[in-house]
């Protein structure tokens, strides 16, 4: 997205990406509301992945945000949104994270086999082969994908697309536990005495 490059930001020390997962209502405008809160504070969304969750009518989002320690404040603000059912910053937790990338590389008779060799090392699949190009699909964490992409740069990458991180807690714990409703508390209107 926009904003200063990752290299520039890494110069500021404590700024580092946060991984946040959210369970949200599957409705128009939800993404707008969430993105709006990050924009207001000037935090850049590095990646964002959304899809249906195991619960009907709810989607699960994973987003990676370049934010300083104030991310906690924004997460609390996001939790207040009616459409956000549950949200959690899992940056400090034991998670499995993956992303998927497709890389379209220039390939001719000479280079094709080299590229396929590299793909195999990375357990990536060749999903399309044409006389002048090849598409490789890879899954893994960011470092894994970064390494593959770095090697493929030698062969002229035509196009690169990445889904962004999806993340999940290790072990049997659910990322978004069900919360019991508070008992309703009625404000008594109009009692205006000291």
């Amino acid at each position: 997205m926009n904003g200063p490059s990752a290299q520039m930001r890494s110069g500021f020390g404590k700024i580092r990406p946060h991984t946040i997962i959210a369970l949200v209502e599957d409705r128009p405008g939800v993404l707008n509301r969430i993105a709006s809160k990050w924009r207001q504070r000037g935090f850049n969304i590095e990646s964002l992945a959304v899809g249906h969750s195991e619960k009907p009518g709810l989607s699960r989002m994973t987003f990676v945000v370049d934010a300083d320690t104030n991310a906690e404040q924004v997460v609390r603000q996001l939790d207040k949104l009616i459409d956000v059912v549950h949200i959690r910053d899992v940056s400090h937790e034991d998670i499995v994270s993956r992303e998927l990338a497709m890389v379209k590389v220039k390939a001719d008779r000479e280079t094709r086999s080299h590229i396929i060799d590299i793909a195999e090392v990375f357990k990536a699949e060749v999903v399309d082969v044409e006389p002048d190009s090849i598409i490789i699909e890879a899954t893994g964490d960011e470092n894994h994908i970064d390494s593959l992409v770095n090697l493929l740069r030698d062969y002229e990458i035509i196009e690169l697309v990445r889904t962004g991180r999806v993340a999940m807690l290790r072990g049997p714990e659910v990322s978004h536990p069900h919360e019991e409703d508070d008992e309703q508390y009625e404000r008594a209107p109009g009692i205006h005495t000291w």
Binding site: V24, E25, I82, V85, D181, D182, Q184
Partner: peptide, 11 residues
């Protein structure tokens, strides 16, 4: 019924 809204009031 709002799954994402819990007006914390008297806990």
């Amino acid at each position: 019924q709002l799954r994402g809204y819990k007006p914390y009031t008297n806990g």
